[in-house]
């Protein structure tokens, strides 16, 4: 039950994109078509879940154990970028089609602030290992959800007659605002 709440909280009520403003760059940049948005979401979910686990270990067994809180940012970003690199290599070895689908997105993920944001939230929330993993997975699912919804709307929008000054980024931001309003309807349903 607890774990379900962690999951729903991370994916819906405190959606990383729409409520926490994490991962806006890919949200605006890679959301033109549903398939690409979905692949990006999958890659991000994978990295989020796994780095949630790794970060938990780094925080618990290195930073806290040796009293090095001030190295947190440096350590986390290094762990994440190293991890993304490893994932890229592993995916390439394991499956060629999967690499083709996800590969190009992986390098982008290092600078996705949703990942570092997730990493920094885990120690703040004091989650256990299992909770951290679920939290990372939920965050990834929420990210994918927002990406795919956005891409779906933008695909439709391509045929709409948008006033010229609003074309491109402005219109995308306004749609995102409306999605954020819709997601506000979920807030308060789950007390964090």
């Amino acid at each position: 039950m607890e774990l379900l709440l962690v999951f729903l909280g991370a994916s819906i009520t405190n959606n990383f994109i729409l409520a926490r403003f994490l991962g806006i760059c890919p949200f605006l940049g890679v959301s033109k078509e549903v398939p690409t948005a979905f692949s990006m979401g999958l890659a991000t979910t994978f990295v989020m879940t796994t780095s949630a686990m790794v970060v938990w270990f780094v925080q618990t067994f290195i930073l806290e154990k040796f009293g090095l809180p001030y190295l947190q940012y440096v350590a986390f970003i290094l762990v994440i970028s190293a991890f993304v690199q490893l994932t890229e290599m592993a995916v390439r070895k394991i499956s060629e089609p999967l690499y083709k689908a996800l590969g190009i997105f992986l390098p982008l993920i290092t600078t996705n602030c949703a990942i570092l944001g997730l990493a920094l939230l885990i120690p703040l929330k004091g989650y256990s290992f299992i909770e951290s993993t679920i939290f990372g997975f939920g965050a990834g699912v929420g990210f994918t959800l927002a990406m795919v919804l956005m891409a779906g709307m933008r695909e439709r929008l391509a045929f709409a007659d948008v006033p010229e000054p609003l074309q491109g980024a402005p219109m995308t931001l306004i749609i995102a605002g409306m999605m954020a309003m819709a997601f506000m309807g979920f807030s308060g349903m789950i007390a964090m």
Binding site: T13, N14, S187, G188, A191, M192
Partner: peptide
């Protein structure tokens, strides 16, 4: 005493 509890959106 310092105390905390769940609110509408967070602690």
């Amino acid at each position: 005493i310092e105390t905390k509890g769940p609110g509408f959106q967070g602690m």
